[in-house]
Amino acid sequence: GEVYVEFLPPNTTSLIQCMDQGVIHAFKALYTRNALQNLVEALDSDEGVSLKAYWHDYTLASCLLNI
């Protein structure tokens, strides 16, 4: 058969797949809540930890554990 290619303008995913918006919004909210909760727990448990030091030590592995 014949294949037709149609180029779409950038940033149209949310218009074409509007169901994704809810999933992405929920994921971002949950991720942010968990990241900040871990931050508060780390600051409460150890007096020597500063905000800057916590985010400096926040690695990709930390991010994946949060997810």
Rank of each mutant, 00 (worst) to 15 (best):
D20P: 01
I67H: 05
P10D: 11
L8C: 12
Y54W: 05
D44E: 10
Q17G: 02
L43K: 05
K52T: 15
Y31I: 06
I16L: 12
V49H: 00
E6C: 01
E2D: 13
L8V: 09
K28S: 11
K52W: 06
L43T: 03
D57I: 02
E6K: 14
T12Y: 07
L43R: 03
A42H: 05
L60F: 04
Y31V: 11
C18P: 08
M19G: 04
Q37M: 04
D20Y: 11
I24A: 14
E2Y: 11
T59K: 10
S45A: 14
N38L: 09
L8N: 02
A42M: 03
S50N: 03
N38P: 00
Y54V: 03
A35Q: 05
L36V: 04
Q21L: 07
L15P: 02
P10C: 03
T13F: 05
Y58L: 05
R33K: 13
S45N: 11
S14V: 08
C18D: 14
T32D: 11
V3Y: 06
P9D: 07
A42N: 05
I16P: 03
D46L: 08
F7R: 13
I16D: 01
E6Y: 14
L39N: 03
Q37V: 04
E6R: 07
A53R: 15
Q21F: 12
L36R: 09
E2H: 09
I24Y: 09
I24P: 01
I67P: 00
L39Q: 01
D46G: 04
M19P: 01
D46C: 00
